[in-house]
């Protein structure tokens, strides 16, 4: 019985983006631009670290949904680290984003095992 060697190579490009402050209509365009660049460079997995985001408005939500849709088209996904601030957290629940996005802990951003 000889050894079968079937290597599987999988390169997953994950962009981990840490945000701080207000994710509102004024700031949303800058985030959208950053994400557009990552997607153009072949990234299809995103982690948004919202730990220190104090406030999110509908323009901010729109960017997150937009990135999610494009990532999923490439079989990618978007994970969120839940905001610490109640105000921001409350709006994600109100818009049922907790049912759309998978949330992870801040410690899970870097894959374990290395």
């Amino acid at each position: 019985m000889s050894l079968e060697i079937n290597p599987t190579e999988q390169i997953i490009k994950i962009a981990a983006i840490s945000l701080k402050g207000r994710l509102d209509a004024f700031e949303a365009p800058a985030l959208r631009k950053t994400c557009d660049e990552y997607i153009a460079n072949g990234f299809d997995h995103f982690v948004f670290d919202l730990t220190d985001v104090a406030m999110i408005d509908s323009a901010g939500l729109a960017v997150l949904v937009s990135v999610l849709k494009r990532a999923r088209q490439k079989n990618g996904d978007v994970r969120l680290v839940w905001p610490r601030e109640e105000a921001a957290s409350r709006i994600l629940k109100l818009t049922k984003f907790d049912q759309v996005f998978v949330s992870i802990e801040k410690s899970e951003i870097v894959p374990k095992g290395f």
């Binding site: 729109a62 999610l68 849709k69 818009t95 049922k96 984003f97 759309v100």
Partner: peptide, 8 residues
Amino acid sequence: EPEDLAEG
């Protein structure tokens, strides 16, 4: 609705 992934 969440499953619609509406952007606005």
